[in-house]
């Protein structure tokens, strides 16, 4: 009888590990934007990496801060040197999960609303966030999109008084990812 339980356990674990449950995005696009009458600040990162586990609902992101590119080179330098201190804190990451996993059918093409919650770490400061996004299942790929805003001061990013009117209170962040089945 013990053998039977073990068999059941073994079967469960084996499916969990072996099924195509992992999707990987190697070149995700993350954009942030801030608008004030003084200045628009816009940056793009097309090197964001992310993994979604469709069985457990786990979502993980990692972004190299230096991969954000700005139209103005000096803005990019100041972003890295003065605000993000990217030599000290080279990466930003997110570790969380899809809260409404049961509402997303990864086997059936379609667009699903997804609620993601987890810990977002920027500038070595961790905040628990909950955001809405969409996951589209299409041609065996997952297309994930999200739009939200973050306030620099929540992440210990100092903005000196002299330039404060060039920054919006919160930055708009747009996330656009294409995941493909992950094969070892």
């Amino acid at each position: 009888m013990n053998t039977r339980i073990l068999f059941a356990l073994l079967f469960l674990l084996a499916t969990a590990v072996q099924a195509q449950d992992k999707y990987l995005c190697k070149h995700g696009h993350i954009r942030f934007f801030s608008h004030t009458p003084m200045e628009d600040i816009e940056a793009h990162n097309t090197e964001a990496a992310s993994v979604i586990n469709t069985v457990t609902g786990e979502v993980m992101y990692q972004v190299l801060i230096k991969s954000f590119t700005f139209k103005r080179a000096l803005m990019e330098e100041h972003f890295n040197e003065n605000y993000m201190e990217s030599d000290m804190y080279p990466k930003s990451d997110f570790k969380g999960r899809i809260v409404n996993l049961k509402d997303v059918n990864f086997a059936k093409p379609g667009v699903y609303k997804a609620v993601i919650e987890g810990d977002l770490t920027i500038h070595n400061k961790k905040n628990h966030i909950t955001q809405n996004g969409t996951i589209e299942v299409k041609d065996g790929k997952l297309l994930a999109k999200a739009k939200f805003s973050i306030a620099p001061q929540d992440y210990g990013i100092e903005i000196p008084a002299t330039v404060r009117d060039k920054f919006a209170k919160a930055m708009d962040v747009t996330v656009d990812m294409v995941y493909e089945p992950y094969k070892k």
Partner: peptide
């Protein structure tokens, strides 16, 4: 997962 992402973003 973390190390896969680490490799990609380093």
């Amino acid at each position: 997962d973390a190390s896969i992402l680490d490799d990609l973003t380093t």
